[in-house]
Amino acid sequence: MSMREITYRDALNEALHEEMARDPSVLVLGEEVALYEGAYKVTRGLLARFGERRVKDTPIAEEVIAGSAIGAAMGGLRPVAEMMTWNFAILAFDQIINHAAKIRYMFGGRVKLPLVIRGPQGGGKQLAAQHSQSVETWLAHCPGLKVVCPSSPADAKGLLVTAIRDDDPVMFLEHEILYNAKGNVPEGEIAVPFGQAAIVHQGSDVTIITYSLMTLKALKAAEELERDGIHAEVIDLRTLVPLDMEAVLASVRKTNRALVVQEGWPVCGMASEIAARIQEDAFDDLDAPVRRLTGKPVPMPYNRILEAQAVPQVPDIVAEVRRLAA
């Protein structure tokens, strides 16, 4: 398959264009998605190509953005609702947690909710406490939601295609820092399956399990560690629900050491969950306790020095792996 290098933003945009062209039941709605072409330009060109009927600007009203996506899905459409950021989606958590996640179950499996809620999250742009959060843990905690966190342009495209085709509510968490990141993306249609982690760097000494932006940092750390003769395997989970523990356990059984890295807060985070599952299912294979490296439990500060300190950086990962491998 021939490749070309495009940005994460354009990869997402391609997925939307292709799926809207393929399936007339797909529509996009959200704040600034049509005329303005998205606060982050992910919906560029959609209005011109598909028109007002399928590309809909909404008021600044997150609850009804999410709720109308749920209703539209129950009525036979495949809506993709954009949240300008996941921080704002917290206003829609009643719809997401109390409704999207539960409707199928509480109605005895009589209805499907094929909808996607997508948008950026995460820190790193000095946007301070209310614009820099990572919400994946809150979502992954709740049964009934699929949770996707792509780290590369190819996955951004392939996972968004899969999300749109999926019959469950999919929470699609892009990383704000990654929109301009470039990477190779195959030409034409790609669909990356859910629940399949990617081993993005092979190694035999330590397994680093991570996702989203932290994958890029872990890769840099792994390259640096190679120079010291420490071979870290880096696993990008790609989807948190469903979670590919098979891949994690297989790697840990090989390396006998595991570090889980996440940007968000530590308490009850994905890192805690994965660490718990590793010790439940691969305790005898471990040569050291599973380590977590997470964001600090603090609202995100504005100051750039403090902000950098609040989330894991490449040297932090390197240092953790060295300690683990020692």
Partner: peptide, 29 residues
């Protein structure tokens, strides 16, 4: 939480006002 797709009864919901966005979305469909 009664429900019956056959007669297009699309549910009873127990968060006060929470079903109104959903009704709006059904009307969009």
């Amino acid at each position: 939480h009664l429900f019956d797709r056959e007669v297009n009864f699309m549910g009873g919901y127990a968060i006060v006002g929470g079903h109104l966005p959903i009704a709006t979305g059904l009307a969009l469909a």
